[in-house]
Design a protein around this nucleic acid. Structure first.
Lengths: 121, 121
DNA sequence: CGCATACTGAACCATACGGTTCAGTGTCTA
DNA sequence: TAGACACTGAACCGTATGGTTCAGTATGCG
């Protein structure tokens, strides 16, 4: 198998690939909230929001605790370090391949300028 | 609408939330490749790989060019700056809420140590 | 007790996803 | 020109996703 079996990344990224869920994270960043509160805020049924919270919890991005009849959600223990690390490594790779190209383009621009040609867009 | 309609983020993250696709990106980071080459490398049909490449291309993470009968794929113009920025802002938010908690935990550890209790884990 | 609140779970629905097969189309190359 | 090669597109398949409704269960409160 070539594909690096990083299930973590899969679940984290999948959890983030939904604007409602990202919204929930931002919201919980401001203050803890019950499922009901979140459902209200995002104009959704309780059940629907519960699923989203479930996905986020599965990904470790949210933790919940039920006391009495209300389940309180808060930002979870899992930081996005892994994701950030992947992005960073990708960035590095990108630069490695295109840093050179950027340089070439920069040189071309300079040349065009000094040749008196107008710069294309 | 409360949910921040950042379609970019949605498509970028969704494109990344698949290990095959991340593998393709890493591969293309090393060298450009044809669809066939990628399909071989990831043990998949041409058609299957073409779909993945399509998703990556849609997200701007890959660009392709067909010359003759072979379509060559290369790392695309879109850097993951947006994604990185979101992650960073989330990180910041996380720290804001939990930096304090970290401090409390650290203090507790210190206290336990000085109390002569053995440190849990 | 009796009612409202807050969640839970099952079932359902439409659509998307990851993958396949199969039947093309277009391009090399001998 | 014939055949191999590289891709393309449509159709299909099983499963997942994002959402709903509806029918519970458990808790709080007057």
């Amino acid at each position: 198998m070539v594909q690096y079996a990083r299930a973590h990344l899969d679940t984290s990224l999948a959890a983030l690939a939904d604007s409602t869920r990202r919204g929930v994270l931002e919201q919980l960043g401001r203050e803890d909230a019950s499922i009901t509160a979140l459902a209200d805020r995002f104009h959704m049924t309780l059940t629907g929001m519960k699923k989203h919270v479930g996905v986020l919890e599965q990904a470790g991005l949210v933790v919940t605790e039920k006391v009495g009849r209300v389940r309180t959600c808060r930002i979870g223990a899992r930081r996005l370090d892994e994701v950030a690390a992947w992005i960073a490594s990708y960035h590095q790779l990108w630069d490695a391949r295109f840093g050179e190209l950027d340089q070439v383009i920069e040189e071309l621009k300079q040349k065009e300028k000094s040749d008196g040609h107008h710069q294309p867009e």
